[in-house]
Design a protein around this nucleic acid. Sequence first.
DNA 1: CAAACATACAACCATTCGGTTGTATGTCAA
DNA 2: TTGACATACAACCGAATGGTTGTATGTTTG
Lengths: 124, 124
Amino acid sequence: MAEDDEDRADALFHALADRTRRDIVRRVLAGEHSVSALAAKYDMSFAAVQKHVAVLEKAGLLSKRRQGREQLASGDVDAVRSVASMLTELEGVWRGRIARIDALIAADHPTQPPPSHPDGPRKD
Amino acid sequence: MAEDDEDRADALFHALADRTRRDIVRRVLAGEHSVSALAAKYDMSFAAVQKHVAVLEKAGLLSKRRQGREQLASGDVDAVRSVASMLTELEGVWRGRIARIDALIAADHPTQPPPSHPDGPRKD
DNA sequence: CAAACATACAACCATTCGGTTGTATGTCAA
DNA sequence: TTGACATACAACCGAATGGTTGTATGTTTG
């Protein structure tokens, strides 16, 4: 795994680890919003909201497009998906553990059918 | 959305926003590890690793089981899945936006078939 | 042009974070 | 019982975070 990937993962998870930023992400995924339109929604200064937007932009969760004097922010769903895929990879690690456990059980009880864990492994 | 859910989301994303902690999660999802076994893997003090484990435990990403003088940590895949589902919900918000845009296009060009965006909406 | 608006950014501040060392407590083994 | 090991936790430190206010710069409009 490249070091840059870890940097990116740090930035993405950190960006999402704040409820104001998660809320901004929801809004800009639903549609374009100017920074001041976003700022109007929260009980904090314009500068604070602008900094949140900057954190999200650096993490790649949104991009900005200038239109006149406004800066329109738009959510990037691919960034959201890349985070989801990191979690899927983690789930895969866990599935490997369960598979190993099942193999052990099968070796101990050669005639028993695989116990088929209640919540895993999904093969769909 | 309950306030507690946001607290939990904060804790989960924050816990995952550190590469050492993500690595610990990988290891404990793959199998049980004592805290000192984990600490041996990283170039930092035992106390530092123990604090990382505590952060992950508070977020619900792992749980500990005492065995003799050791504390065995085990990853909780359901917590990982709950994070993934938050991201899926975000993706759903984005899909709503695309659906709205498609509806507008359909209204402007009543005879055109829906343009079917390159990466969305997935209906599988 | 001037005034109002939208944004950007620097400086500052309190709190949190990620690390350290040191100490206390519990458990296993000789 | 006495060490040695595994864990927990407090106290501390520098850096980053999340907020503030103030100032500068561009853009639209009267």
